[in-house]
Amino acid sequence: MTTIAVEHETLSTAQALNRALRDALAEDPTVLVFGEDVGPLGGVFRVTDGLTAEFGEDRCFDTPLAEAGIAGFAVGLAMNGMRPVMEMQFDAFAYPAFEQVVSHIAKMRNRTRGRVELPLVMRVPYAGGIGGVEHHCDSSEAYFAHTPGLHVVAPSNPADAYSLLRDAIASPDPVVFLEPKKLYWAKGDVALRSGREPGIGTAVVRRQGTDATLIAYGSSVPVAIEAAEVAARDGRSLQVVDLRSLVPFDDATVCGAVESTGRAVVVAEAAGFASVASEIAARVGERCFHSLSAPVRRVTGFDIPYPPPKLEHLQLPSVDRILDAVDDLQWEDA
């Protein structure tokens, strides 16, 4: 199907997601949006604001308060011709749905030798940086990325929020769509479009640089860009790759970027042990070994439960921590 960028608008990430849902609902009568408080309230982050009023209760609706039910219900809807887009209210509140996600959503295509497709999207506001209390700031991407059968994406700006959500809804496979909470209010230019285009799976070089490559996704992209800006003032040129999609993983773009600089730091907010950041570091280490002048470094959250609001600044990758890691990359002039 063709993609035509029809217009541009300045939107916040939350508004861009809202617009993506609205456009998908308008274009495809099988798209259904549901979850907890997504109806008249418009979601606790207002991502579904106005959708029930515009499209009616059959298209955007509140469910009973039960995440396993929501996810299992989505499976059935998708089995019978619908394109469900469900919302989990917060990262940690998706855990009751885990059984449905891992044992059914991820496996249905494989179990049925390709007969049963589940073109569904699970939207999950994720990560911290908003002063949230426990269970409201988890970075749960590793659980999903580790589960074969799921696509996992995480936008870092309003434009990608819009296009990735359109892609996710168009995808023939289930997509876990991670929305960085602290970026909901950030504004940016968004290219709107019509039509379906399954386009998940491409990373992008967000900022050009020659000395080292920072690899980030979702909530950690803005801090990586900020670190690159600070480094530039000190005469060091850092490149920033925004993954956008964790699964599928864009090895070509990532390796191309790393090979062009010969050094790499992975930046991610989740605890580092057995994480997506570890997977990225391992892949880069294996594939770009001969271009690397130093081992790949990771700047991640510590291996602890997400801290309470008063201490969360210690957990989040900071500009200083990123630059410390960059400094460690065995520079000849050091």
Partner: peptide
């Protein structure tokens, strides 16, 4: 209520 959802929609 459960946040915005009234009992009638809950059960």
């Amino acid at each position: 209520y459960a946040i915005s959802v009234p009992l009638a929609r809950q059960s």
